Deep mutational scan, measured.
Amino acid sequence: ELIWEQYTVTLQKDSKRGFGIAVSGGRDNPHFENGETSIVISDVLPGGPADGLLQENDRVVMVNGTPMEDVLHSFAVQQLRKSGKVAAIVVKRPRK
């Protein structure tokens, strides 16, 4: 059984690379294997702001206090874009 651990990460936006993450998932883009609608970190740019803080497959729980459960992919992207220079991101990942 999976035990999820929650992490809060504060990312500083890089002028060229943004937050250095890509997200997939969302209500309109469920996971191809299990139908899960979570917003998921799909890519972490090496050397970017999120490197060492976020991991691929982290589930995004909140962005700047806005819940990311059962939202559209575009909504999640929009929340990240409009967060200015700093984003507080809450993620969960299975305990190893």
Rank of each mutant, 00 (worst) to 15 (best):
residue 1 E to P: 15
residue 1 E to N: 15
residue 2 L to N: 15
residue 2 L to Q: 08
residue 2 L to Y: 15
residue 3 I to G: 04
residue 3 I to R: 05
residue 3 I to W: 10
residue 5 E to H: 07
residue 5 E to C: 07
residue 6 Q to T: 10
residue 6 Q to K: 15
residue 7 Y to H: 11
residue 7 Y to I: 13
residue 7 Y to C: 11
residue 7 Y to P: 01
residue 8 T to D: 15
residue 8 T to R: 08
residue 8 T to K: 09
residue 8 T to M: 08
residue 8 T to Y: 15
residue 9 V to D: 08
residue 9 V to C: 05
residue 9 V to L: 10
residue 10 T to Y: 08
residue 11 L to R: 01
residue 11 L to T: 03
residue 12 Q to L: 08
residue 12 Q to S: 07
residue 12 Q to R: 15
residue 13 K to L: 11
residue 15 S to P: 14
residue 15 S to K: 09
residue 15 S to D: 15
residue 16 K to Q: 06
residue 16 K to F: 09
residue 16 K to I: 10
residue 17 R to P: 04
residue 17 R to F: 14
residue 17 R to M: 15
residue 18 G to W: 08
residue 18 G to H: 06
residue 18 G to V: 04
residue 18 G to Y: 05
residue 18 G to M: 14
residue 18 G to P: 02
residue 18 G to E: 15
residue 19 F to N: 02
residue 20 G to L: 01
residue 20 G to D: 03
residue 20 G to Y: 00
residue 20 G to E: 01
residue 20 G to Q: 00
residue 21 I to Y: 01
residue 22 A to P: 00
residue 22 A to V: 13
residue 23 V to C: 08
residue 23 V to Q: 02
residue 24 S to M: 09
residue 24 S to G: 15
residue 25 G to N: 02
residue 26 G to V: 01
residue 26 G to I: 01
residue 26 G to Y: 00
residue 26 G to D: 03
residue 27 R to A: 14
residue 27 R to M: 09
residue 28 D to G: 10
residue 28 D to Y: 03
residue 31 H to C: 07
residue 32 F to E: 14
residue 33 E to V: 11
residue 33 E to S: 12
residue 34 N to C: 15
residue 34 N to E: 14
residue 35 G to Y: 05
residue 36 E to I: 04
residue 36 E to P: 04
residue 36 E to A: 05
residue 37 T to P: 07
residue 37 T to E: 07
residue 37 T to D: 04
residue 37 T to I: 04
residue 37 T to S: 14
residue 38 S to K: 05
residue 38 S to W: 14
residue 39 I to K: 02
residue 39 I to T: 02
residue 39 I to V: 13
residue 39 I to H: 03
residue 39 I to G: 02
residue 40 V to R: 14
residue 40 V to C: 05
residue 41 I to M: 00
residue 42 S to Y: 04
residue 43 D to Q: 12
residue 43 D to V: 09
residue 43 D to L: 11
residue 43 D to P: 01
residue 43 D to I: 07
residue 44 V to G: 04
residue 44 V to H: 00
residue 44 V to Q: 00
residue 45 L to E: 04
residue 45 L to Y: 12
residue 45 L to F: 15
residue 45 L to Q: 08
residue 45 L to I: 09
residue 46 P to A: 14
residue 46 P to K: 11
residue 46 P to H: 05
residue 46 P to E: 14
residue 46 P to Q: 08
residue 46 P to W: 06
residue 47 G to P: 02
residue 47 G to N: 15
residue 48 G to Q: 03
residue 48 G to R: 00
residue 48 G to V: 05
residue 48 G to W: 00
residue 50 A to S: 06
residue 50 A to H: 02
residue 51 D to K: 07
residue 52 G to C: 03
residue 52 G to I: 02
residue 52 G to D: 06
residue 52 G to V: 02
residue 53 L to M: 10
residue 53 L to W: 07
residue 53 L to P: 03
residue 54 L to E: 02
residue 54 L to Q: 01
residue 54 L to C: 04
residue 54 L to D: 00
residue 54 L to F: 03
residue 55 Q to A: 15
residue 55 Q to Y: 15
residue 55 Q to I: 10
residue 55 Q to F: 11
residue 56 E to R: 12
residue 57 N to M: 12
residue 57 N to T: 06
residue 58 D to N: 01
residue 58 D to T: 00
residue 58 D to H: 00
residue 59 R to V: 11
residue 59 R to P: 00
residue 59 R to S: 03
residue 59 R to Q: 12
residue 60 V to Y: 01
residue 60 V to P: 01
residue 61 V to L: 13
residue 61 V to I: 12
residue 62 M to L: 07
residue 62 M to R: 08
residue 62 M to D: 06
residue 63 V to F: 12
residue 63 V to K: 00
residue 63 V to S: 02
residue 64 N to R: 02
residue 64 N to V: 00
residue 65 G to H: 07
residue 65 G to N: 04
residue 65 G to F: 04
residue 66 T to K: 12
residue 66 T to V: 12
residue 68 M to N: 01
residue 68 M to V: 06
residue 69 E to T: 13
residue 70 D to W: 03
residue 70 D to L: 04
residue 70 D to Q: 08
residue 71 V to R: 06
residue 71 V to G: 03
residue 72 L to S: 11
residue 72 L to M: 14
residue 72 L to P: 14
residue 74 S to A: 14
residue 75 F to R: 04
residue 75 F to G: 02
residue 75 F to S: 07
residue 75 F to L: 04
residue 76 A to K: 01
residue 76 A to D: 00
residue 77 V to Q: 09
residue 77 V to S: 08
residue 78 Q to T: 15
residue 78 Q to G: 14
residue 80 L to T: 01
residue 80 L to W: 03
residue 80 L to D: 00
residue 81 R to V: 13
residue 81 R to A: 14
residue 82 K to L: 11
residue 82 K to P: 04
residue 82 K to Q: 13
residue 82 K to M: 12
residue 83 S to L: 08
residue 84 G to P: 12
residue 85 K to D: 12
residue 87 A to N: 02
residue 87 A to K: 02
residue 87 A to M: 14
residue 87 A to I: 11
residue 88 A to Q: 11
residue 88 A to E: 15
residue 89 I to G: 01
residue 89 I to L: 11
residue 90 V to M: 10
residue 90 V to P: 00
residue 90 V to G: 05
residue 91 V to E: 02
residue 92 K to D: 11
residue 92 K to C: 06
residue 92 K to W: 07
residue 92 K to H: 08
residue 93 R to P: 01
residue 94 P to R: 09
residue 94 P to I: 06
residue 94 P to Q: 11
residue 94 P to G: 12
residue 95 R to D: 06
residue 96 K to R: 09
residue 96 K to I: 11
